[in-house]
Simulated assay, not measured.
Amino acid sequence: MTVPGPVGQVPAVRDPAALTEAAIPGVGALALAFAALDEDAALFAAERALREQECRSQARRREFTAGRLAAHLVLTALGRAPEPVLMAGRRPQFPPGVAGSLRHSGLWAVAGAGRFAMVGVDLETAAARCALGPRAVRLFCAPEEQQADVLAVFSAKESVYKALGGRATDGAELPLSRIVCEPAAHGFTAYVTGQLPFPVRALHGADGSVLTATARPHPHPAAPCPPRPAESRCPRRPPTRTTRTPLNAAFEGPAQGVAPCG
């Protein structure tokens, strides 16, 4: 991994496809694996059936195949035998105990996975910058967000979108404009109404590509009340006074000199 660059910039790596993990601040390491779109891979029967059902063009078939190859490789990196990766709604359905995300861009497919509650990864090639004209940027970027690399902002929002399955907490479609990204040393901290902040790791390839990744750990289960006699109950604890803190205090404070997104 590389040393983070200035706030609002993503650190550079010579070859994003050589990465094997992304460190998500406050969460842990997310395993990564890449596969070239021109590679042919043996798929499981269930994956082949899904490909026949969902992929109408040869190009889409190549993307699907490379995505599943990357998924098999990332499962191996986690110490698990490859298994079929199908779909559960909008998310790829990794084996029980593993959350993962798939993305293809340019000549590559990438898979990110780990033992987390949710995972999102995104890869954008330098060519994607050509599609981000001023009108498109205004649709998903607040003015404050446009002070950073807008391709990295777009990719960070895509990672969070994938982690949430494209849905807001009320089940409605989640537009990218409702995902607010604030620059941080590791990339971004993303905010979505009704959710805790998402730390988004961002890496910039020497070729102008951008890779972002986020993850949410499983919540810690509440400690059960110790066994008591039948006539006894768990004592009620007196209410404690809490102090409200900014949402981003869960991960990193706002960078100096950068206006928070609102």
Rank of each mutant, 00 (worst) to 15 (best):
R90P: 00
Y161T: 01
L174K: 07
L203K: 02
T2K: 14
A215I: 04
G262S: 11
A29Q: 13
A190N: 08
A172C: 12
G257R: 07
K157L: 07
A77M: 03
S101K: 03
V153P: 00
H204Y: 12
G194R: 12
R68S: 02
H186S: 05
V121H: 08
A46W: 15
S57D: 13
L102A: 03
L151H: 01
P82Q: 01
A81E: 11
A249W: 15
R68N: 02
V210L: 02
G28A: 13
R228G: 12
G106Y: 11
A111V: 04
Q53W: 07
P96S: 15
L107M: 15
G187S: 08
H72Q: 06
D15R: 09
A117N: 07
A46M: 13
P143N: 10
V27G: 15
C261K: 06
L211T: 01
G114D: 06
L196Q: 06
A202L: 08
Q93S: 07
G165N: 08
V13K: 01
T212D: 06
M1G: 05
P219Q: 09
T20M: 04
R216Q: 07
T169G: 07
V121L: 06
T245K: 03
G89M: 01
A259N: 11
A33V: 03
F198Q: 11
G165D: 10
V137N: 03
I179D: 01
A70P: 00
V121W: 10
L203F: 09
A29P: 09
C261P: 09
Q93V: 01
L123C: 06
L139K: 15
K157R: 09
